[in-house]
Every structure is written in C-alpha cells, then in structure tokens.
Amino acid sequence: MDFTEKKVKSDYKFHGKIMSVRVDDALLPNGKPCKREVCEHVGGVGILPIDENRIVTLVRQYRYPYETTTLEIPAGKMDQGPEEALECGRRELAEETGLRAGQMIPMGELWPSPGFMTERLHLYCAKDLTQGETHPDDDEFVEIVRMPFDELCQRIASGEIHDAKTVAAIGKALIMGL
C-alpha cells in the first residue's frame, strides 16, 4: 500500500532564525485534500561526553518553552552556515563545556517530532576528553554538571530527566555498548 501524501501548495507563515513555519495543502493517499502544518528546523547535534571513569558531563539550563530548568547533554543547532554535524558537535561541546574530544563516535540521527517538524538531530558519544575553556553564546547560561553514567540512567528511569535527546543518547549508548 502506498502511504505517500502529495504536497500541492505551501504557504509560509513565519521565517525565524532557527525555524520557519508553513501550512501545506496536500492530498492524502486516497486523493482527499488535507492541510499539513510544518515547522522547518535547521537541525542540530547532541553530544554524550563520557570520560574514562564513566562520568558524564551534562549542562543545566533554563528552557523557556517549558518554563523550567533542565539537565541535558550538551547540544546545539547547526547555524554556522553550511556545517557538518561532526563539526557542529565539536563546536557545541567546546562552547558549552570546554571539553575537547579525541574521539567522536556517531550514534545516528533522530527525528524528534516527525509529525510536524523537519528537525534532524545527530547524536555523538564523545570520548578521550580534555578540559579547556568554555565559550557559551551570549544568550546561553549553563551550569556544568558531572555525574556517573549509572546515576544518569537512574534519573532517566525515574522520570526526573525529560529531555528527549538525553534519553535517546543514553539509550543509544547502552545499545551500542559505549
């Protein structure tokens, strides 16, 4: 069975720094018309830094849409012009935590919310870490938090950590034996 929907027309409603929003007129597989709301996102990278003692470096930061502080892996958007995911990951890791990774192990790509968003999030596990200076963006206020990998797993299992990229990165690391 063919589940493909056909885009007929797009109407952009908003263009921002990291996303654009459009409403499409489309045709369902049975030929009936429908509307699809789409958020086009620039994409990003999440990095799970694990040192030789299985200590994970996380960042605590305020997340405006949820009006709360979160604990999550370092991450960022691919907003530096044409940028490869690996380059973005190294840059974001250094900016937010000051860490440099001797090894960046690819853990795949996630689609955080494919029902309405085009965001592609690339995950890496950073190993062979050395500490340097942080260089956060002007609008970025983060606290570095280090904790054992097993404790992070427990906090995810208990529901304390809600951030999807962090939960996914830990799951991928466990599956991959990292």
Rank of each mutant, 00 (worst) to 15 (best):
D139Y: 12
G98F: 02
M1Q: 11
V59N: 03
R100G: 12
K17P: 10
D11Q: 09
W111Q: 12
K165H: 08
I50R: 00
Y66E: 07
E40L: 11
K172W: 12
P112Q: 03
K32S: 15
H15N: 13
P65T: 05
M1K: 09
I105S: 05
R91E: 09
V45F: 01
A75W: 07
T166F: 04
A168P: 00
C153H: 01
D128V: 04
I144Y: 00
E67A: 11
L86Y: 02
P82F: 10
E52C: 08
L174D: 07
K165C: 04
N53P: 05
K7Q: 10
C153T: 11
L48C: 07
V167N: 07
V56T: 08
C153E: 15
M104R: 00
E92A: 03
H122K: 04
I18M: 15
P114Y: 02
E151K: 11
C153G: 07
L152F: 05
C125K: 03
M78H: 00
T130R: 11
V142R: 07
F14C: 04
A173H: 01
R22C: 11
Q61L: 12
S20A: 15
R63W: 15
S20V: 04
H162I: 06
G159S: 07
D11L: 06
H122C: 08
Y12F: 15
V21F: 14
Y12A: 07
A164G: 05
E5C: 10
D25P: 01
H122Y: 13
L71E: 07
L99W: 08
T97V: 03
P29Q: 14
Q131E: 12
M19Y: 15
E160D: 15
V23Y: 06
D137Y: 12
C88P: 00
F141P: 01
L28R: 15
K9A: 08
I175L: 14
E109M: 15
E72K: 09
K9N: 09
L48W: 02
I170L: 09
G115V: 09
G177N: 01
L27Q: 13
H162V: 06
G132M: 03
R91W: 04
N53K: 13
G16L: 07
V142P: 03
L110K: 08
A168C: 06
K32H: 14
L123H: 02
L174C: 07
I156F: 01
G43D: 05
H122L: 01
I73H: 02
M19A: 14
L58A: 05
V59A: 07
K165V: 10
A101T: 06
E109H: 08
D79K: 03
L58D: 02
Y62M: 10
R60H: 05
F14E: 13
P136A: 02
D25T: 12
L121I: 13
L152R: 01
R60E: 15
C153Y: 00
P82Y: 12
M107C: 14
D163Q: 09
C34Q: 13
K127S: 12
E160C: 04
K6E: 15
C153Q: 13
C153A: 12
F149S: 03
F14R: 10
L93K: 00
I161D: 03
P148D: 13
G108V: 06
G159M: 06
F149D: 00
E143V: 05
C125I: 09
K32F: 14
